[in-house]
Amino acid sequence: MDDEEARTRLLDTAEALFYADGIQAVGMDRIRAESGVPLKRLYRVFPAKESLVTAYLKRRDQRWTADLRAAATGAPDPVLAVFDWLADWFSEPDFRGCAFLNAYGELGAGGPAQVLDVVRRHKAELRSLLAELAGPNHEDLADQLLILVEGATVVAALDPGPEPARRARAVAERLVSGCVPRT
């Protein structure tokens, strides 16, 4: 097993465990055991748990944002497509809320700086994507949509299923219809 294969196995395992059980509840020994990566290689690839958590969140951010962007791009109404995508995500059997808010909630404002930086960048990227979808001169709409997305995600974490996204979509429809044309 080379370092790249070890990295992939470790990230796959860390993502499954951190998302399901929480960052603090999962130790490096468990990740090593479940990934099948020898301890020496684990620490060569990720010298500290903080570096593994950071890599996990960065990878999740890239995939999550790309999936959301793909769902919205080309949709008849890209803004509303965001909420349709959320409804599907909230219905996944292993849905456990937002990995980034979960990480922040666990680690708090005093958590590792590089981890918190990834969390903040993810939220800034999400807001930027919403601003892009809302169209030029609709900064207020983008901020409102961000609150709807985040609120729906938190509600769905407590009560999984598509309904929080559907309710947020209905509010988004009203917000969008009150805007000057977004094209």
Rank of each mutant, 00 (worst) to 15 (best):
G74T: 02
A156Y: 10
D140W: 10
R69E: 15
E163T: 13
A72Y: 01
A152L: 06
A142P: 00
L145E: 03
G108C: 00
E106V: 03
L107N: 05
L101C: 05
E92L: 13
A87E: 00
L116W: 05
R167Y: 13
P76F: 06
G97L: 05
S91N: 06
A71N: 08
G97I: 03
V149E: 04
A142T: 03
R69C: 06
G178W: 12
A172I: 10
V118R: 08
F95I: 11
Y104R: 15
S177Y: 06
W89R: 14
V115Q: 01
E173H: 05
V115P: 11
A109N: 08
A172L: 13
V115N: 01
D88I: 09
D143N: 14
L101R: 13
E92R: 15
L68C: 04
A142C: 05
W89N: 09
C98G: 10
A81C: 06
V119T: 01
H122K: 11
G135A: 10
A156T: 01
F100Y: 13
L126R: 02
G151L: 09
L133A: 01
G178L: 09
L130T: 04
F100V: 00
R169I: 07
N137E: 14
T54K: 12
A124C: 00
P160K: 03
E139I: 03
A168M: 04
D143R: 14
P112L: 02
L80P: 07
A113M: 07
A156L: 07
Q114P: 06
F100K: 02
P164V: 03
R60C: 03
R120E: 09
P162N: 12
E92D: 08
G110Q: 09
A142M: 02
A131K: 10
R174C: 08
V171P: 07
A109D: 13
V149T: 06
A71E: 11
Q62I: 03
A156P: 06
L175Q: 11
L141C: 01
Y56G: 01
P78K: 12
R169W: 09
E173S: 12
G111W: 00
C98D: 11
L86N: 02
T73E: 11
G111I: 00
V154R: 14
A55T: 00
Q62N: 08
L86C: 08
E125W: 07
A134N: 08
R59E: 13
L129A: 08
Y56K: 05
A75W: 05
R169A: 15
E150A: 12
L116E: 04
G110D: 12
D77W: 00
V79D: 09
S91P: 08
L130I: 04
C179N: 12
I147C: 10
N102F: 02
Q144W: 11
R167T: 13
R60T: 13
A81V: 02
G108L: 01
K123H: 14
E50N: 09
I147F: 10
F95Y: 15
V119C: 01
P112S: 11
V82G: 07
